[in-house]
Design a binder for these strands. Structure first.
Lengths: 153, 153
DNA sequence: CTCATTTGACTTTCTTTGACTTTCGCCCTT
DNA sequence: AAGGGCGAAAGTCAAAGAAAGTCAAATGAG
C-alpha cells in the first residue's frame, strides 16, 4: 500500500507524540515541510486525531498561533469511551444526571464537581426558547468527558 | 509555545504586580523597552488587564503622565453578586471564562472545577443550530453562581 | 462509481503598526 | 496672577499582518 501525504503527516505527528503526551505545532510550517496546503493539516487532524481515537486538538489563531495535539487515555475500563458514545444522542436530564453520578462513584469527579456540573445541565440552566435542551445537554457532557479523558494521564 | 510580544508584556506587568497591589509605569518607556509602538501597551492593557480579569487601569496624560495598573479586591459576597448581575445579559465566551478564572483565584472554585465548568460553556459544548449560545452561557453561569452562593454560608 | 484526498478561495481571530487626537504641566508674556 | 502656547505624555481607531479554520470543488485510488 503506498502512502498518501495525509498518511505521512499522520505518522509524523504520531511519532512526535511518542515521547510526550502532547505536541505543539505550527500549521504553516508543517504544511511547508510537507509541501502541501495548510488546510491539509486540518484534514489530517480532523480525520485522524479525533477524540474517538483518543486525541484532543486545541489551537489558537492570529499572531502567535499554534495547534496543540494531545493524547488522552481512558484508564477507567472504557467507561469514559462508552459515556462518550452515549452522548452522541440527546440525553434527558435524568439520564445525564445518572451518568454524572456514576462518574463520581468512580472518582472521576469529586462530589462537588459532580454537583456543579449537574447544575450546568439542569433545566434552569438550559431552559431556552427552542426545545433543544437535550442536544445541548449531551454536547456539554461530551465536552466534560473529553476534559476528563485529558486528565487521565 | 511561542509567545507574542503582547504575551511577554503581559507577563512583565503581571510579575511586577506580584509584589504590590499596584504598579505605575510609563507607556513610552515600556514601549521602548520592548521595542514596540506605544499603542501596543494599550492593546495589552485592553485585552489582558480588564475589569473582568480583576484589574483596574488608571492613567494621566501630558507632562507627568503615567499608567497605573491595580488589582481590585472586594469581598466574595460582593463579587458573586456582581457576577450574578453580569449574567443578566448574554455573556460571550471570553467574558464568561474570565469570570470563572476570577472565581478560581478567589478559591470559590478549585482549579479543576473551574476548568470543568469552562468546558461546559465552551463553544463546542453550546454550539447549536440557532445562535443563542450567549444566552445559554449566562444562564448556566447564573446557576453555578447561585449554587456557590448557597455554599457560602 | 464511491470514498478519501488534495487544493484553494474565502473567513475569522489575534497582533502589530502608525497616523491622528486629547490632555496636562510648565513656562512665558502681559 | 491669568492666560496662552508648547511639548510631552497618553488615547483612539482603523488598516495591515499573521496565524488558523471552513467548505466545497477537483482529483485520484480502489
Amino acid at each position: 500500500m503506498n502512502k498518501s501525504v495525509s498518511d505521512i503527516i499522520e505518522e509524523f505527528i504520531m511519532s512526535s507524540l511518542d515521547d510526550d503526551s502532547f505536541i505543539e505545532l505550527s500549521r504553516n510550517d508543517l504544511a511547508k515541510f510537507f509541501a502541501c496546503v495548510p488546510s491539509q493539516i486540518n484534514y489530517v487532524l480532523n480525520t485522524r486525531f479525533t477524540i474517538n481515537r483518543g486525541f484532543v486538538v486545541e489551537s489558537q489563531r492570529g499572531g502567535a498561533g499554534y495547534i496543540k495535539v494531545s493524547r488522552v487515555k481512558d484508564n477507567d475500563d472504557n467507561f469514559l469511551k462508552n459515556a462518550l458514545d452515549l452522548c452522541a444522542t440527546p440525553l434527558n436530564l435524568t439520564d445525564a444526571n445518572q451518568l454524572l453520578t456514576q462518574m463520581a462513584e468512580r472518582k472521576l469527579l469529586t462530589a462537588n464537581e459532580c454537583e456543579l456540573i449537574k447544575t450546568t445541565i439542569s433545566a434552569k440552566a438550559l431552559n431556552n426558547p427552542i426545545n433543544i435542551d437535550n442536544n445541548i445537554r449531551s454536547n456539554i457532557l461530551k465536552q466534560v468527558i473529553i476534559k476528563l479523558m485529558q486528565k487521565q494521564k
